[in-house]
Design a protein around this nucleic acid. Structure first.
Length: 553
RNA sequence: AGCGAUGUAGCUCAGGGGAUAGAGCAGCCGCCUCCUAAGCGGCAGGUCGAGCGUUCAAAUCGCUUCAUCGCUGCCA
């Protein structure tokens, strides 16, 4: 489904030409590729249709192209002239005013410009971050949070119905461990001797929480039954940690629709019936005193244990119940954003949902490659200030929400990347995000000046014929396509690339085309319309990656 | 050993069948009596890890190979 009027029109015109020429009986418009050439000397758009047709027609592509350019209806396509180039490209040069009509559309749609119904309201559940509530979120989570949040914003804009979800692992051993660690720190805070568990949480955050708890409850659990005490610290520890996670994500401008508790799976008895379902379908067996899931029947490397010899579940078991629950809630597709260290998880979870009657392609697990912090070419594991792993908080404090988010959103999640903190800090003023924000501030400044000079936007644009104006208009015209592409690939960096280019084209236009000119109000007014369209588009694009569009800098 | 990811400019990364391979940062040279110089214009910088294949066309697809990282629990 195409959403760009000009492109639809050009494809129709090309289609009509090849049918009129009897090159083909019929041809799907979707198969006709037109693209914007990198080099504008190759036209506003180009098509490789003649080269594609060589296979069917068994003729020289330039010959085929010659036929097409003679048959093409230039009037209907708003085409100025057509050229054949290279091996058989058809380069289309549009009339100068062909694309300026997009300005009017943008001015009318305002905040909605860029939004489409492309996704047809398909229900998606996107789960991301889902870190255990046992400590602060760090570097890897910061990447997952930024990318996940951007994906949701972008998919929403492209017309998908997206639910953002966080799975809280609040039932496993790690929470018991948290409780034991807190209990120890609590007693220590009151001056009692108590050893931290061997594999306990040694971080400063645990000490801080314990001290807060001490302030609230005093010595209440000093002489209490240990079981009772641990149950208390389990509950209160999870609440504290979760609240910290919510607070920092909020500060990071990441929001959720659903916070799903693992414990609720047990409270609502979802786990045992899930195992039963697998057993009923014949996908489990007992061996070595454990209950196994025959995941190999669905392409996994080996079968997986569901119930351990000691009767407890592996981590996988509640996770299967959780994924089943999500699918049963009516989402057509699930997306999980996971760190690269969890990639082994893909096959077994896909196996599980297939065993439970769903399709493998309903679960999309996007793997986020690792983030390493590097300084002077050395990998740094710890924050210099706190001595702990680098947290989102460190990033926000050091380089700011906008720059951090933009930085993560700019990189494809599938490539590992080295985050040079020293560089990010020292060059924060030259960070690409400021380049884009500065462009926006400039636009707003012009808008203010125009208001003072009593210049208003125009609804016709025939004077916008400068190269810089045309280039800017063409890029604005591409925005909806770019949002759709980005949504389909779940690739926010497509949007930051778009933003970068938009800012660049605007800065260049700004230098060559003076907007406010009291002696030429008509041109001023038309240019002002272009500035408004640029400002709306840039603001909407920045919003898709959760970055502010400042009016002043 | 097997599975996965990655290898593109000095650095961090885009491009993922199509024309002369791009951006930001770093470097060099120019541009403010005029809407924000956090800007613009220009220069320099590349065996797209290597090899073989598929194709009219390969950085892009396939195979081989080298390198780096991750995973290969009845941990979560």
């Amino acid at each position: 489904m195409a959403v760009n009027k000009i492109e639809i029109c050009l494809k129709e015109v090309l289609k009509k030409a090849i049918i009129d020429l009897e090159y083909v009986d019929d041809y799907s418009v979707d198969k006709i590729v037109i693209e914007i050439p990198k080099d504008k000397a190759h036209g506003d758009y180009s098509s490789n249709i003649a080269m594609q047709l060589t296979k069917i027609l068994k003729r020289n592509p330039r010959e085929i192209a010659q036929g097409i350019i003679e048959a093409i209806d230039k009037e209907a396509g708003n085409i100025d002239h057509v050229e054949i180039a290279g091996p058989g490209f058809i380069n289309l040069f549009l009339r100068k005013d062909a694309m300026t009509s997009i300005i009017k559309e943008v001015l009318e749609e305002k905040d909605n410009y860029g939004k489409t119904k492309y996704g047809k309201g398909t229900k998606y559940n996107v789960e991301f971050v889902s870190a255990n509530p046992t400590g602060d979120l760090h570097l890897g989570h910061a990447r997952g949070a930024a990318v996940g949040d951007c994906i949701c914003r972008i998919m929403n804009a492209a017309g998908y119905d997206v639910t953002r979800e966080y799975y809280i692992n609040d039932a496993g051993n790690q929470i018991t461990n948290l409780a034991l660690s807190l209990y120890a720190r609590y007693l220590q805070a009151l001056g009692y001797e108590k050893q931290l568990p061997e594999d306990g949480y040694h971080g400063q955050d645990i000490i801080d929480i314990a001290s807060q708890i001490k302030e609230e409850i005093g010595e209440r659990y000093v002489d209490a039954d240990e079981k009772e005490a641990i149950a208390y610290f389990r509950k209160v520890g999870t609440e504290f940690e979760l609240q910290k996670i919510k607070d920092i994500l909020n500060e990071y401008r990441v929001s959720y629709d659903v916070w799903f508790s693992e414990t609720s799976l047990y409270d609502e008895n979802k786990v045992e019936p899930t195992i039963q379902k697998l057993t009923d379908k014949g996908y489990t067996y007992e061996a070595d005193g454990a209950l196994w899931f025959k995941s190999t029947e669905f392409g996994d490397d080996k079968d997986r244990v569901l119930v351990k010899t000691d009767g407890s579940y592996t981590y996988l078991t509640p996770d299967i119940a959780y994924h089943l629950n999500k699918l049963d809630r009516g989402y057509e597709y699930l997306v999980d954003l996971l760190g690269a260290d969890h990639h082994g998880y893909i096959n077994r979870m896909k196996a599980a949902i297939q065993a439970l009657g769903y399709n493998a392609d309903q679960l999309n697990i996007d793997i986020m490659q690792m983030v390493r912090m590097v300084e002077n070419g050395e990998v740094v594991k710890m924050s210099k200030r706190t001595g702990n792993a680098v947290t989102i908080k460190d990033l926000i404090d050091d380089i700011g929400v906008d720059a951090t988010r933009y930085f993560f959103a700019s990189k494809s999640g599938s490539s590992p990347f080295d985050f040079d903190l020293g560089l990010a800090k020292s060059q924060s003023n030259d960070n690409p995000v400021y380049y884009a924000q500065y462009a926006h501030a400039r636009m707003c400044s012009i808008l203010n000046q125009a208001k003072n000079a009593c210049i208003d936007v125009s609804d016709h644009y025939e004077l916008l014929v400068h190269t810089k104006e045309i280039e800017l208009v063409k890029h604005i015209n591409e925005f909806r396509n770019e949002v759709i592409e980005s949504a389909k690939l779940r690739a926010p960096h497509k949007i930051t690339n778009y933003i970068q280019r938009l800012a660049q084209l605007f800065h260049s236009f700004y230098n060559d085309c003076y907007v406010i000119d009291e002696n030429n109000k008509e041109l001023s007014s038309q240019r002002l319309s272009l500035v408004v369209a640029s400002q709306i588009t840039l603001k909407n694009a920045l919003n898709l990656v959760g970055v502010e569009a400042p009016e002043k800098m």
